[in-house]
């Protein structure tokens, strides 16, 4: 069983901090995301999850600290990183096929050369027959499927999701969560999954980074310890409930109230149950 020290993390976040003038959004944030791992980032709204993510992909400069992607410091958006956006971010004047191909055509690949891969991905996300449609002709869930296909088209080593299902209705969200897990299972990208939904964070994540406080910092990093493949039944397991309850309390926890956490924390940290093999990437 290899330990984390032997694996080079795909994303290495080192003492990251961001300030706007006087206001500090977050400070001293450090964590890794390993190849083939999904790390969820949760925290109350306004805690700077999206800002953190923008710093990681190079859309924004952090005030302190560094981000390494595949061992290289991030200054501008690096090669091999793809992102899925909260409001899908499809270009409304491009067809679905042209949107899916965007990451390739922006690099100078012709639409014709991109066509086979575009077709394969459109099929993978279940959008066959909509290649020539425009985004406004599709439902939100279908638009986000296209957003996911676009991200996968560049064969990313790092996939970054910014509350990708927050703008969708509950049913569509449930379906797409499992779809994403299915699709991700066929690849080996490292995934950073930002969400404000605790259930989603537990369902998607191998580990969960909990942000808290003002300015926010990492309160805890939790091993979810539920093996893949996961499905609808995952949410009915004891382990899911234990982790969810712990994360819920950690996020909602009042600084003044220090009673309920320790027992739950023990349950989550010390008792990896039968999923010891999932804990190769210890956060310690």
């Amino acid at each position: 069983m290899p330990t984390v020290t032997e694996v080079e993390p795909m994303i290495h976040v080192d003492h990251l901090g961001k300030q706007y003038g006087e206001r500090t959004v977050f400070s001293d944030i450090s964590f890794d995301v390993n190849p083939g791992e999904i790390v969820s980032i949760v925290g109350p709204s306004g805690c700077g999850k999206t800002t953190l993510l923008r710093c990681v992909v190079g859309l924004m400069k952090p005030s302190h600290g560094t981000v390494l992607v595949s061992g290289t410091p991030v200054v501008d958006p690096p090669e091999g990183v793809a992102m899925v956006f909260q409001h899908f971010g499809l270009f409304p004047w491009k067809t679905i096929a042209a949107n899916v191909a965007y990451g390739l055509t922006a690099k100078g690949v012709s639409m014709k050369d991109a066509a086979p891969r575009v077709h394969e991905l459109i099929k993978l996300v279940g959008l066959e027959g909509f290649e020539k449609s425009y985004p406004y002709q599709l439902s939100g869930g279908m638009q986000q499927r296209a957003g996911l296909a676009r991200a996968l088209a560049v064969e990313p080593g790092v996939l970054v999701m910014d509350e990708p299902f927050a703008a969708l209705d509950a049913q569509t969200r449930d379906i797409l969560q499992l779809e994403l897990l299915r699709i991700w299972g066929t690849r080996s990208a490292a995934m950073m999954f930002v969400t404000h939904s605790i259930d989603e964070a537990v369902l998607m994540g191998d580990r969960i980074v909990i942000l808290r406080g003002r300015p926010s910092s990492i309160f805890d990093i939790v091993d979810v310890g539920i093996p893949h493949p996961r499905g609808r039944e995952t949410v009915d397991t004891d382990r899911f409930r234990t982790v969810r309850d712990y994360v819920w309390r950690a996020v909602m926890h009042d600084e003044a109230d220090d009673t309920p956490l320790p027992t739950d924390a023990d349950a989550v940290r010390i008792e990896p149950q039968s999923h010891r093999n999932m804990n190769g990437h210890d956060h310690g």
Partner: peptide
């Protein structure tokens, strides 16, 4: 967001 998309995909 659209400008972010363009930048993330290294336009």
């Amino acid at each position: 967001e659209l400008l972010d998309v363009a930048r993330v995909y290294r336009t």
